[in-house]
Every structure is written in C-alpha cells, then in structure tokens.
Design a protein around this nucleic acid. Sequence first.
DNA 1: CGACTTTGTTTGCACTCTAAACAAACTCGG
DNA 2: CCGAGTTTGTTTAGAGTGCAAACAAAGTCG
Lengths: 400, 400
Amino acid sequence: MAAPNLLRTINETRVLNLLFQRGPHSRADIARELQVTRSTASALVAGLVERGLLLETEETADVERIGRPGFVVKLNPSARTYIGVDIAVSELRIVALDLNADVIASLTVPYTDPATPDYVVGLVRPAVEKLLADNGLAFAAVEGLGVAIPGLVETDGVIVFAPILNWRNVDINDMIQRAFDAPINLYFDNDANACAVSEGYRAETSASGTLAYFLMDSGVGLGILHQGQVFRGQEGVAGEIGHARFFGGLGDSGLGDDVDFAAAPTFEDVVGREGVLRMCARHQLPITSIREFVELAKTGDPDARRVFELWARCLAVGVANLCVILNPDEIVFGGKTAELFSIDPKCVHDEANRHLRFMFKTPTLRTSVLGVLAASVGVASVMHGQSFAISANTDGALSA
Amino acid sequence: MAAPNLLRTINETRVLNLLFQRGPHSRADIARELQVTRSTASALVAGLVERGLLLETEETADVERIGRPGFVVKLNPSARTYIGVDIAVSELRIVALDLNADVIASLTVPYTDPATPDYVVGLVRPAVEKLLADNGLAFAAVEGLGVAIPGLVETDGVIVFAPILNWRNVDINDMIQRAFDAPINLYFDNDANACAVSEGYRAETSASGTLAYFLMDSGVGLGILHQGQVFRGQEGVAGEIGHARFFGGLGDSGLGDDVDFAAAPTFEDVVGREGVLRMCARHQLPITSIREFVELAKTGDPDARRVFELWARCLAVGVANLCVILNPDEIVFGGKTAELFSIDPKCVHDEANRHLRFMFKTPTLRTSVLGVLAASVGVASVMHGQSFAISANTDGALSA
DNA sequence: CGACTTTGTTTGCACTCTAAACAAACTCGG
DNA sequence: CCGAGTTTGTTTAGAGTGCAAACAAAGTCG
C-alpha cells in the first residue's frame, strides 16, 4: 500500500508549505530550503505546475546575486477553494479562502425563521452555491468545508449542545453531507476554537507556540491553539473557562469551612455580558448594552471607569490563572463583551501582571483583528491546513 | 542531504514502535500492520536484527491459524539503555530503562553536603557509572540521559530557578556535558512534567489524550501530557497551577469592589503541605507532618476527617477549573501531600463533580503508581521515546 | 571581453518498495 | 497416511525516488 512515491508526496507538501509560509521561491532556493538537490526541486515543481498547484512566473528572485537569475514559482491561488461557515445566533457567515489562505469572498445570510437545525442547515448549500457563483468560483475546486458551532460539537460532527441555539444532539455532519450530492470533506469545531485558529494560523505562533482566545459575549469561551493544532480535551470540552470558579472566597475563617464553592459565581457570571450589566446597575449606570457602556467609558465617565476597573480586575484573575496553567505566548480577546478590553488594555495587563510577577514574560494581550468573520475564517483555515499537512495516521503510516 | 533511505529509516522506526507498543510479531504480521509487503518487512527485520535491535525467536505466533506458522521477532531489550536522573531535595534518584522501557536498575544517592550545584552535579557521573557497573550495563549502550529538576528549567538545560534547592541560573547542561568525556544526549525537564510522562508514557492516553499530573508536596506543580508530548508554555512555565488564585472572594458587594485578589491565597497556599498543616492547627489537631495526618485520618478521627473534607473541597475547585480549561482524560496525584487523596478518593471526585455537572465525563482521578521514582522514570522515558519517534525538524524535513 | 558564479536540466547510479513466483511448513478432511 | 488448501518467508524483476556530476544558459565583475 505504502509506496516509494510517498517520499515524493511528502516533498511536494514541503514545497507547498515553503511557498505558503515564505512566499515565492526559485527552484534553486527551494532546493536549498528543503535540503534536496536542484534536480529534485525541479522535478517537484514540474509535477506541481502540471497539476495546476503552482504557477511559473517571469519574475526573477529579488535578491541581487551574481550568476544566472532564477525565475520564481508561486502558489496558484485559484487552484483550491476552502469554505468556512459560522452558524451564529442570528445569521450564517460564510467565507471562501484560496490556496494562499486569503479571504476572497464572504456572505452573510440572516435567519428569517426560528433557528431550528433543519431550517439553518437547509440554508447552507444554497448560500455556499451563491457565494461561489457570485465570485466565479467552481465547486470542483472546493477542497473542504468547515463549520463553526456556538456550542459543544464532537469531531465527528454531532452537536451535543449549543445553548444559544438551544440545539441538542444534532448530527450536523449527516445533515450537511446529505444536502450535497457528492461526498464533501467536512470539519466541525467550536466557535472559540475556530477563532483561535483564525488569529494564529498565519502567525509564527502557529507552528511553535500557544495562543489562547477568549470569546466573550454572554458566555466566555476559550480557544487554545497549540503548535498549530486546536487543543481539544477528551470530548472537545476543553476551553469552557466560562464555567471556572475563581471567586469562591474562603470566608471568615480563611479555611473555607462554611463556603459552598459551587454556589460561587463562575468566571462568565462575573466578566460576561450579564456580569458587566449587573455591575452597571449596582453602580447606578443607565446602561442596557455593552456598546453603550464602552461608549460611556470612553468619554471618561468616572463611574463607568470604576466599573471597567472592577471588570478588568476580575478578568485579570482569569488571565493570570490561565497563564500559570498554560503559559501561552499570546492572549486574544474577541466577541462583543471583549470590546471592554479596548477601553484600557494596559489596565488589564497591569492587573494580570500583579499576579504574575514571579514569571519572566507575561503574554501579549490584544484584541481580535478579524471581527465577526473570525470563526468562519478559522474553520476554513483548518481545511486549508489539511492540504499542507504531513501527518502520521493511527498506524504510524505517513500521508500528505 | 536527505536520501532515498529516509523511507527505510521511517519504516524501521515503525517496526520498532509496533514491537514496543504491541509486543512481538512475526514478519507477516509486521507486514500487515505496517501495510507493506512481506518482502519489505523481511528486509526491515533483517537490517534491525543485524544491528542488534531485534531478536529472532523460536516461538511461533500464538494465534492459531492454518498454514505455515511464523517465528516472531521482538525488541532486544539490552540493545539500548536510557538513564533518568531526578535531582530531588535531599538525594539523587537514578534509574535505567532498557529498550522495552522497563526499569532494569535504580540507585539513590543521598546528599551528605549542602546541595550546591557543583556538589550535586558532581555526583551524577559517578552515580551513573556505579549504576551501570552494578548491573552489568555498558556505557556504550546508553542512548540518552534525562534530568528532572524541581524547578523551572529551559529546554537548553539552564535552570532558571529551583526554589527548593535555591539554585538560580545554573547551566546544568554544560556542567553535565563536561563531566562526561564524550558528548552525551541530554534532556532536561521540570519534575512535574517528568512525572506526567512517567504515568502516561505506556498508556493509551500517551498517544491520544491528555493527562494532568498534580505533584503535591510543599508546593503544587502540574505536568501536562498531551498526545504523548509534554505541554510546555512559552518558557516552559506551563503547569505552575500552584500559583493560581481560585479563592479570592468578591466580598460583601458581590462585585469585588474592595477585594485585592493578589492578596488572596494561592492554590498551593491552601492545598499544599503548609495549607494542610495550617488547617490542622486551626482545628487543634496535634499534627506535624503529612504522614501523621494521613494516619490519623485513616483511623477515622472525626476532626481529621473534617480537615480532610475541607482540603478535598478546595482541591476539587482546582481540579474542576483544570477540567473546564483542559478537559483531561485522566488526572493523577503524586507527591507526599497527595497521600491525602487516598484517604477518600471518592470525596474529591464527588466534590469536583458538583462543579462539572454540565460535562459528560469527569476525568479519572487516581494516585501515582510509580512513587518516588516517577520523575526519574519520566525523563528516561522521554529519552526512550526519542528512539521511537518519527519527527519533522524545523525545516519540515523528516528524520527518525 | 573573458573569468567567474548561479540556474535549471539531463544522465547514470544507488536505494527502496511492490508484485509475482516459489519452496517450506502447517491444518484440515477423508 | 495423504493430498488440497493456506500461510510464511525468500527471491527476482520492475517501477519510482533522490543524489551526484556534467552541461548549456544567463547573469555579474574586473
């Protein structure tokens, strides 16, 4: 079964990875980077060009060197298309990536009926076809379709529970697979995980380090990207930091004698949307939405500032606790409630630092750059990554 | 540089892995498992036998099948030796593993002088040589030497800080390398990480899931094993859960207005050795060591039971918080203070479950099986694992 | 303009794996 | 006991891969 051409497949994948991560290269440069001979590099490029994955250009390598210049080859962006679908609370968000992992198209489809599984999943195929048609993309080039779910989804595509949609035990893999005529390469993940991928996929962090993504709306989810892979627990439940309890005080005795920790508020009770609004109410702020609060705080209102500082202090406890457990390189805040972070990032940073003084480097804290499309781009990126992966299957056999 | 024999190397490694993980196989079975032809399997075995890594036996495969029986081949345990050294508070603990990852020898060397870096590291080479000599092992067969450190150590072998030993900025890699005449394959890791490896290395968990190891003595460390790899943060600081703050109450207002979370006790302040002894003192228990306390509690003393339940309740908060972040398959408790866990494992389990009712499967909770040798075995196992790894280097080039 | 450097291709060789054929060793049924 | 059928392990021929070396082409440098 395994063949001598396995080596060729692996090396082709290495060429694709090199061109994706570090841009166009000449054949001679490819040979140097991949540590193969120029003859091998030429053969690899020839095969990939013939299959349409690479384009030969007229451009010479920009490095000024003596000797004959080389013509660079690059990825053919339109050779493949990767689709990402985010099933959000009130709309479907769809993006298409090309072989460069660039977003080449996006589409939002609001729900006009109640968001039942049948209704929402029924929107997927028409929406995908519209996205492709509107942008002149061929269905045949679609290499995979990723789906982000605001809830707990198993890797085989069964939604165990999506609280915001109130979906339970939905076999979305089966539903989508049947909506399309031909078998299609599908992937399912939690929205926080997808967001983490979207923020880390193209960064250096992707391959080497750890990125944590706080997805903060009403609840608080956590996506963990570790060495380019989503960190999933035994059932994909990793990242439910919103349910963590960091605020169960030990009481007067200092020993917790009479404290019921399970009755203490969870992390998301305190720093999620409802937590913020509750703090506002207690401080007599006439606020009904996160957006209003952020605007008020940015005017410099002292009461709003006071609430923000409380929120930052509580968030920092979670950030610090995450740091001592995972020590990520980078922490990203996304979702509506995360807009509070931008009021004064330094404040959150300083509060977290008070807990982490014994460490040498606090992670970078920043807000998400992709906005509402983050989850869609994330799951599409995972599909993209599959095209560039050299992986060992369960038998230890390598494939690419 | 890369050669056509890379494929051979990969397949040889696959043979070794198969025989290590699933025991002796005939050539025909190897061919089936690895999905290669019998001729290839024969060639692979022949090469490995010639190099002494495999042994041919007279035994036939025990499965009763019609047709000519096959003779099984197995790993030659004495072909390689892997050494693990644990630099503990008051002694050096050394183990030797063979190619089967079985512990074939161990040695403990107590410190007679103050544990300065020079003194302790000076003990390593003589101790290793004694261990080898006493057990008839050849230095030439030593494939690698791992060192476990009770503190923060970088992968390049610089101990940043080991609080119990009061060592700072010790380049132990350089010190050990120079103690030996020939260059030696060294590996360094934190003791909690090493313990996690020792518990998970041979389990199914090793390849697929996540195992968390609480190393509880005075402090509380955490080792995380994920898909066979130690989870290390950006500077190897992941797993400092002892510094986490889970007990900063929000105060009377319920909002944390006046609470200084940084002044709240850390996780290890509460559940570490000093925390236990403090609880004993407050409950008028005449206890001066963990061992005394465990013995008293096991007699059924009601006051000791009360303290234990408090401890279990606080530990459970940490366990539950770890679960919602990482969702490990298995949680193991090791170290002296972890002996409290064995007083009533179910109590800890039930307390944690109260926080995790929304999840579908709480992880298995259990105590360490290896005892004081866990860390030594862990770092030796990492060295063993290197012999069985097909890995991609930073350029994406594969090696084995 | 010639010497030098680098690129990309071609050719011969070494290596690995597969496929097919074969003798050897065992089970099964009569 | 014996022949049919099955499985093992080896051998041989063939296809695929990468390497090393030689080569023409295309540039820089003095």
